[in-house]
Design a protein around this nucleic acid. Structure first.
Lengths: 339, 339
DNA sequence: GTGAAAGCGCTAACAA
DNA sequence: TTGTTAGCGCTTTCAC
């Protein structure tokens, strides 16, 4: 059996509670006994039992990370490791641990969340996604459990802590950039699914068009899955009504995949079609041509998310807030003036 | 205050121990009372407290994942999400949770591990790396704590559960493939650091040369950091003694980065230099030219690792074993017959 | 088949 | 400044 606080107490000739106080570095314990107790701990190789402590203080010092794996097929890029890296920096600083929940379907996610919350496995939750009409968010709100979301909750965002880019704005900037290069036939390539960041980007795209007096054309909105059906789908898209001369891609990986197809089809980037995309993954600069992409600062997204959550955990009275992480368009070689 | 077992007991007019037995689905409880108790649980919205349960049964039903973040800068590619996806499938099947430890330095990692183990936060550990002479492994072995490593422990591998590719073999295959194409000036591009998979790949490379009677040339071993110093470094390397006509790259991302530099330098792949690399990331097929790469089946690595660990946790007597995940060379367009 | 009681290892009043 | 005591919520002998 492992060393407990009692063993240490006996060794140091004090009571268990004194040992407990030494662990907490309680100021009302004399330096002498502190030293004596610490020596005993050292000698016996004592380590506090986290579970017991959690039970007693009703706090686990761990935050749960909810990561939808259905999405992560899609988000194959460095988003996930990077956001976790951001979270871990804060967690570590506050001596919090991270508990990972990776479920597939919405149903599974919901169950895991309920388990984590009710089972008191975590003190707070950070959701790495946001979809429209999310059951999990509603639940957490109802029971008033501390959580933060990376992204924008679509309903009642005013009442939830969240950190996000201003996707509408930045996509507008991107689209206007393309418009500035003379493009008017601009397509929008997104994921399937009801992720909010997608909707926001679409909205920004629409706003830019609208403000420039370019009519919105439903045919220019394409989902990745459509294009993934193969070259034929891409061809038929490009030859549609009026073929687009520029693309707003919601993800670098889609852009890179597309460029690869384009090459085989002898469509030149950026001469024939300009491409601007999102995330600015490491590889964006190495693609041919180097990809013009929006740096959304994934690390910050994670770090600020964790920071807000921790704040809320420590003080349940902190008000809901939204933090906006600046995104920046990184111009490279994949966009050109229209001929 | 949340609903406890006592509340349920009261509601159902039984004792707390009976409720506990119902939770465990103990066969000695009559169906009637089971039903009655379950109704009470339902009615009150009871959820078992995980921490309390852990304390009582001395088991946490969670596995710890140790992920060195210093390495993950290097392993920017999908390795990390993918291996976790593999782990999570097993964890979920066994109703285990995942606790994530992300530390930077060896020292930090060690401390986190000790904390997790002694603090009894986890029932077992899975190490996502293996470096030479690892302190963590020694420690875990000494205290006989269940763990599995993804990769090959360099010392006493016979006594530790691990899952790995046969890196020596597969790299030999890759190198021989290049030799078969007529190359003799073959360089090896690796990471810095003392990761075992690197050493193994280097070994396989050497073996292939040796068996084909090609002398080994130290100048052909290059670390990524050297090349990252910029184009000058690459140029001087390629113009060294006898410039290589083929490259064995230990990572797709390095290969892709390199190819990007090559293009600017008007070095053609594969005409001037052939490149074969590792990991077979999604993007490998979309690079120009499509990258010949080794598929190491990261998902399996994670899944089998978790599976072994869980086995060990459930039965401490299972013997140490090594599982080898087959790796496969995927031929694409980045290697050509030497002229 | 069910209940009473002790205990998992720790913390936190309350005393002293 | 320190010890005593009573939990935290659950499991698990040992009785009945």
């Amino acid at each position: 059996m492992a060393i407990t606080i009692k063993d240490v107490a006996k060794e140091a000739n004090v009571s268990p509670s004194t040992v407990s106080r030494v662990i907490a570095d309680n100021p009302r314990i004399s330096e002498e006994t502190k030293i004596r107790v610490r020596e005993a701990m050292e000698k016996l190789g004592y380590h506090p039992n986290f579970t017991a402590r959690s039970l007693a203080v009703k706090s686990t010092a761990t935050i749960g990370i909810v990561m939808p794996f259905s999405a992560s097929h899609v988000l194959q890029d460095p988003f996930f490791p990077e956001v976790i890296r951001g979270i871990s920096v804060q967690a570590r600083e506050h001596k919090y641990g991270m508990y990972l929940s990776t479920a597939g379907t919405e149903e599974e996610i919901f169950e895991e969340v309920v388990g984590m919350v009710q089972g008191r496995r975590v003190d707070g939750l950070i959701l790495l996604y946001s979809r429209t009409d999310d059951r999990v968010i509603k639940y957490l709100q109802k029971i008033d459990f501390p959580f933060a979301v990376i992204g924008r909750p679509v309903l009642g965002a005013e009442r939830v802590i969240h950190v996000d880019n201003d996707n509408i704005y930045i996509t507008k900037v991107v689209t206007e950039y393309l418009i500035g290069l003379g493009h008017t036939n601009i397509a929008f390539i997104g994921f399937d699914g009801d992720f909010v960041f997608m909707l926001d980007r679409l909205e920004g795209y629409k706003q830019a068009l609208s403000e420039s007096g370019i009519p919105f054309n439903e045919d220019y909105i394409v989902h990745k899955s459509t294009l993934s059906k193969g070259k034929e789908a891409i061809k038929s898209f490009l030859r549609s009504v009026e073929s687009p001369t520029a693309l707003v891609c919601t993800d670098d990986f889609i852009a890179i995949e597309l460029m690869s197809h384009f090459e085989e089809m002898n469509i030149r980037v950026p001469e024939d079609v300009s491409i601007a995309s999102f995330n600015n993954v490491l590889l964006a600069q190495y693609s041919k041509p180097a990809l013009t992409s929006v740096d959304i600062d994934i690390f910050q997204l994670g770090m600020q998310g964790a920071s807000c959550l921790l704040e809320k955990i420590k003080d349940p009275n902190v008000l809901p807030k939204r933090i906006t992480i600046p995104a920046k368009l990184i111009e490279r070689k994949s966009c050109a003036q229209i001929k």
